[in-house]
Design a binder for these strands. Structure first.
Length: 480
RNA sequence: CGAGGUGUAGCGCAGUUUGGUAGCGCGUUUGGUUCGGGACCAAAAGGUCGCAGGUUCAAAUCCUGUCACCUCGACCA
């Protein structure tokens, strides 16, 4: 009875079906990923959330290096005149640029934009760094934060300042640039599906939805548990759209001056939002082992009893030696039950309990965060057992998310079907390619075109909107 | 940016209608008993009531302004 009264004061997470947005906010706050700050729309990432971002960075950075990219660091300020050089780009970003107008007490002769993205700076530098065909390609990336003056913000999904990586490359030929654009899309897909366990729709954006100044934009689109789409990463082929105004030229083997072909690609802290909304449940966060700050947490049971803490320490040492990120929760003022809930809330993939009964049998009791399945692992080969479980958890998390995605994706052949389907997930349809039809979908259902899959095998002859001949397969959804 | 809502101790809230000098639970600190799904006892610390004006003998409470956050819509990684 005392226990029941107590329950009322334990903070609970709003159920997903009741209010998905509130559930998201609850999880973000209660898992201690971030905090709000005195700066409008800007968040502080707390250690736990920041560590997830670091692990995402480490994982992706390795893949960038493996595909021949180098990291650089460019200024966070961009002179207004530079930003104005590419018309479409200016138009796209102008409404959300923050400006620095004063340095110390002096009003600046030219105001400086706080970077919303760095295409123009990279192009300016590229124009100085490239002379000969021998200098190409330049394949650079930077990890930094950027600022966009968003009207409304939400932790990780849309913040005024956000952390990201932006890759920028220049190449001698259009073919190479296109190859790079698709290569990085594949790097994103592989990382997000294999490590973050989030299944994706991969394809090309419509002209309406493509990046300001790009010739072609590609995206990886994820599905959240409310059926809405979240763009998890994009890659752009700019052709010579920027390199012409910025005069990024090289002398080719024939001695002629030619414009470079440019690409850029980015992913951001939004990926953390994607992890939360793709995997989380009523007990909180559910982290894929690949980016979990702690892949396993060891909880001593009756820690004061003989041998318990010693066994826990040994287990920790064994797991650490095997390269597993492990936490031994030795706080003695909290009950086991409290810790169970806390680590579930924080999404730790695997819980290991070690108490007198386990030690007697030479085992640790485990519980998987993904399936809540319980079992035992022999202590003398704990690392092997944990490793195998973490691998299985990774597979299972992808599988569960993928089943959900498939169950919420449907081919549609009429506007009525489209309207129903975008309320629960993604709709796939034929599309004639006209902007007017996209606008109509937006108008009717507030859904947008997400991307055109690489498999363009027609599923019908006519555009789902206008009924005229159509040759494009398109995915549609309501988006974050 | 439009509509609605909320700002009181680290967190969650009561108190505001009807002005009288701030309270509850959790958490925190100290000591002790506990420990296999949110333990218990005892003692203690912690708040210029988002901010700025105004009304009043007196403001968390009334008035004006302002800021922040949340939810729902329109735009964006």
């Amino acid at each position: 009875m005392a226990k029941q009264a107590k329950q009322e004061f334990v903070q609970h997470i709003t159920p997903r079906e009741e209010n998905f947005s509130q559930w998201y906010t609850d999880v973000v706050k209660m898992a201690d990923l971030m905090d709000y700050t005195p700066v409008r729309g800007c968040m502080a990432m707390k250690p736990y959330g920041n560590r997830i971002w670091e692990l995402i960075r480490e994982g992706m950075d390795k893949r960038f290096a493996d595909t021949g990219h180098e990291n650089v660091s460019l200024p966070m300020l961009i002179p207004e005149s530079l930003l104005m050089k590419e018309a479409e780009h200016v138009e796209g970003f102008a409404p959300e640029v923050a400006w620095v107008t004063q340095g110390g007490n002096e009003v600046l002769p030219e105001r400086l934009a706080i970077r919303p993205t760095s295409e123009v700076l990279f192009c300016t530098m590229f124009s100085q760094w490239v002379q000969s065909w021998r200098d190409l390609p330049l394949k650079y990336n930077q990890w930094c934060s950027v600022m966009r003056w968003e009207k409304t913000t939400r932790p990780f999904l849309r913040t005024a300042e956000f952390w990201w990586q932006e890759g920028h490359t220049v190449h001698a030929t259009a073919e190479e640039a296109q190859e790079e654009t698709l290569l990085m899309l594949e790097v994103y897909r592989a990382f997000i599906e294999d490590v973050l366990c989030i299944p994706l729709f991969t394809g090309q954006k419509s002209d309406k939805e493509k990046f300001a100044g790009a010739r072609a934009t590609y995206s990886v689109e994820a599905m959240m548990q409310d059926g809405k789409a979240l763009q998890a990463g994009t890659t752009h082929n700019f052709g010579t759209n920027f390199t012409e105004p910025f005069e990024v030229r090289y002398q080719n083997k024939e001695g002629q001056l030619a414009y470079c072909h440019e690409t850029s690609w980015g992913t951001s802290t939004r990926l953390i939002g994607a992890i939360i909304m793709a995997h989380g449940d009523e007990r909180g966060l559910k982290l894929p082992p690949g980016v979990a700050p702690f892949q396993a947490v060891i909880l001593p049971i009756a820690a004061h009893k003989g041998g318990v803490m010693e066994t826990c320490e040994e287990a920790k040492t064994q797991l650490q030696a095997a390269g597993i990120r492990v936490k031994l929760d030795d706080r003695d003022h909290l009950s086991p039950g409290w810790k169970f809930n806390e680590w579930e809330l924080k999404g730790v993939p695997l819980r290991l309990e070690i108490g007198p009964r386990d030690i007697e049998k030479g085992v640790a009791t485990y519980m998987r965060r993904d399936t809540f399945e319980k079992g035992i692992l022999p202590l003398n080969s704990l690392a092997e057992g944990v490793r195998a479980l973490l691998e299985d958890i990774t597979r299972e998390m992808f599988s569960i998310a993928n089943q959900f995605r498939l169950s919420r994706t449907k081919d549609v052949f009429s506007m009525a079907e489209m309207g129903e389907q975008v309320n629960v997930g993604y709709a796939r349809s034929m599309w004639c390619g006209r902007r007017a039809c996209e606008d109509q979908v937006k108008e009717a259902f507030s859904a947008t075109s997400r991307n055109m899959p690489f498999d363009q095998t027609p599923i019908a002859p006519d555009c789902v909107v206008c009924g005229e001949a159509a040759d494009k397969v398109m995915y549609w959804a309501k988006a974050y």
